[in-house]
Design a protein around this nucleic acid. Structure first.
Lengths: 203, 203
DNA sequence: AGGTGAGGTTAACGATCGTTAACCAGGATC
DNA sequence: GATCCTGGTTAACGATCGTTAACCTCACCT
């Protein structure tokens, strides 16, 4: 692999892989060190604690997701173009960083409180970025419903680590198409879906 | 809460909640006991080990998901009706058992090897149940792509625990509509769907 | 009455964990 | 050439974990 990376980055990458496979509490610092060719407490030359390593990992990806998402929305000329670009970005990210995707919503609760709050804020902003575009497409859509739809789209796209059964190229096509269809027309016109009706017709 | 349940079931229910919040390795048997009004090693009067408790929990829900899924497919008169019924069932299950949904794909790797294999087999059968219906709708769809689509639909529906921002009734409507749309017209064999527009750009 | 088993208790065990301490090699700096 | 910082090492610590052992207490059966 890329041997030119710094030891610090190697620790982050390897930790992502191990945490994704066995969970934060299921990986000891000795395991992590061994997987990096060093052993045990050498980790503390690069991070103040095991929790701090996790925090840096998750804060970094939350920032990256949000920053690129904002850039793409800014560059778009319509809501549908923005959403399409957001989907492409998130699919690309999920395919390139499967391990990080798993760790993010699995070991979120193992982070120190302050970083946990930071990630929560970043994630909320990212969700609202999607939700805003959805509400531009259908202004009758309540914010809470738009947020739920964004979360559902993330769940769909983030399913890729759990099913590594397609080559990345084909998986990209499947996920992109499904996500765009799922977000397509926010109000269900189809019959037989029950009487819930998503409210919001009058407010 | 329901005080008429057996202690054994109370342990399973409470464990699901705690595991979902902090992860299997993040919950000690003392924590679990305390949350049930008993303390510490009393767990071993009901389960041979902490891992065995997790295994029973996950095997049970995998069996339940598959059994009801098979029943619904058997009762359906068409592939689209079967898929719609499967979506309803999975959405209902996810809304009723949020904690179990979280634990299932979070602490799968913490199970003893034999039970892990058992759950894997049950889940694979459940995925193939969905995939078979998808391929009835579009016979050109490869099995691997159909499986990926089923996984993606699960991810979409299972997102509900992460976003508890809608009342269950409205959430059911949103998830059902999105899942059906996502599965709706199976993906064209075309790679790189480039600048696909969202159909509803006009309003 | 007396025995029994189910479901608790506390105490204690060995293992493992995250973390700290003390030490050491080597290359850059002055 | 002495010095210092960087990134390693091994040893040891205290805490916590899952698990076992030994004991207790009733409800229940005969």
């Amino acid at each position: 692999m890329t041997e030119t990376q710094t030891r610090r980055q190697q620790l982050l990458d390897t930790a992502a892989e191990l945490f994704a496979a066995r969970g934060f509490h299921g990986v000891s610092v000795a395991d992590l060190g061994a997987a990096c060719g060093i052993s045990g407490p050498a980790l503390y030359k690069h991070f103040p604690s095991k929790e701090a390593l996790l925090a840096e990992m998750l804060v970094a990806i939350s920032e990256q997701l949000l920053a690129e998402g904002q850039a793409r929305v800014a560059d778009a000329t319509s809501a549908s173009e923005a959403l399409s670009s957001l989907v492409d970005w998130h699919v690309d990210f999920a395919l390139r960083h499967r391990a990080l995707i798993v760790v993010q919503d699995r070991d979120w609760s193992s982070m120190p409180a302050e970083s946990r709050e930071q990630v929560r804020t970043l994630q909320r902003a990212y969700v609202d970025l999607w939700a805003a575009q959805l509400r531009l497409l259908d202004p009758r859509l309540p914010l809470s419903a738009a947020r739920a739809m964004a979360h559902a789209a993330f769940g769909l796209i983030n399913s890729t680590p759990h099913s590594g059964l397609l080559p990345a190229d084909e998986m990209r096509g499947v996920l992109t198409a499904m996500a765009l269809r799922a977000l397509g027309s926010p109000v269900p016109g189809s019959p037989g879906l029950g009487s819930s009706g998503l409210g919001s017709s009058d407010s």
